[in-house]
Design a protein around this nucleic acid. Structure first.
Lengths: 153, 153
DNA sequence: CCGATTTGGATGCAAACGCATTCATACTAT
DNA sequence: ATAGTATGAATGCGTTTGCATCCAAATCGG
């Protein structure tokens, strides 16, 4: 294989570092606020977005791109914490619908607030508006292209 | 706090997704080639870059931004695999110098090759040259800015 | 010099994760 | 109907991680 462009490779390393830098700070600020890890926020947002009936575990799995046992255990913990409720699933007795509870919404709000604060403190200050827009656009096109590549197997 | 710009926040989410997408593929291609995880490559590269005397564990820790026990165990495994060697440290009898072995260089080469192939397959194709350059530059400035922010405590 | 503190590194333990397996239900074809 | 397969979800187990602690050597203060 031809050696890939130096600049492009360096870009990937930098992306790794930026991700590690910001993700680290988000997680640690959630933790020091006594809140669960970031993946809960993703899950709670998916459930909120899904509306009344909630989601089946396997739907959440696809949305979050996690391994199946990870979802199983995540939901177990979230249910134990009262953030979600299992309701019987009429059309498939193997599974359940997981729905957001009032307490889950409260947790979601507190997490979202810490999350936004962490980004305001550790992400936004390091980008100009122009850079932030360019980044968003480039990464958006990356993801579109990657999804297309996955599509045509 | 004021609500941060929508575009900028979306940019962060996208960065997370791109990172997860590419990192996942790198790790899984290393694994299916029977090679150790990506962090070994980082460590081996640091050691190579450090030259003759190698590095102390705590130096590696700073370079890789890992927790101290993680480095301790990583080096334990790398030593067990013959990729690195511990040599006594003259100037501080608490620690060692870790140096690269011939076998470590060989592992490094094989990992670097898989790594480059994975990026060629899963990262580069989704960016134009222009986008890759822009990304590299924006993230470079981000990291400079972030480092500066850490510097002035 | 000598006690107190700091720093480099390892280790014990509990929680988290990845993988394979298992169980139950749903689908499919004959 | 029924055998065979495929899918949703949970669980057991070995490995990895994170945190706190611990030990030893180095540094600092008197």
């Amino acid at each position: 294989m031809a050696e890939p462009g130096k600049k492009a490779l360096r870009g990937w390393r930098r992306l790794e570092r930026v991700h590690a830098f910001v993700a680290d700070r988000i997680e640690s600020e959630l933790k020091s606020a006594g809140l669960p890890p970031l993946v809960w926020l993703r899950a709670l947002e998916e459930l909120e977005h899904a509306g009344e009936d909630g989601l089946r575990p396997f739907e959440l799995q696809r949305a979050l791109d996690l391994e199946q046992p990870a979802v199983s255990r995540l939901l177990e913990k979230m249910a134990a914490a009262g953030a979600v409720a299992r309701t019987d699933c009429a059309e498939d007795r193997r599974g359940w619908n997981m729905t957001l509870t009032a307490s889950g919404r409260e947790i979601r709000d507190r997490m979202a607030s810490i999350h936004a604060a962490a980004l305001s403190a550790h992400y936004l200050p390091h980008l100009s508006d122009k850079q932030a827009r360019a980044l968003d656009e480039i990464l958006g096109e990356f993801l579109d292209s990657a999804r297309a590549a996955k599509g045509d197997h």
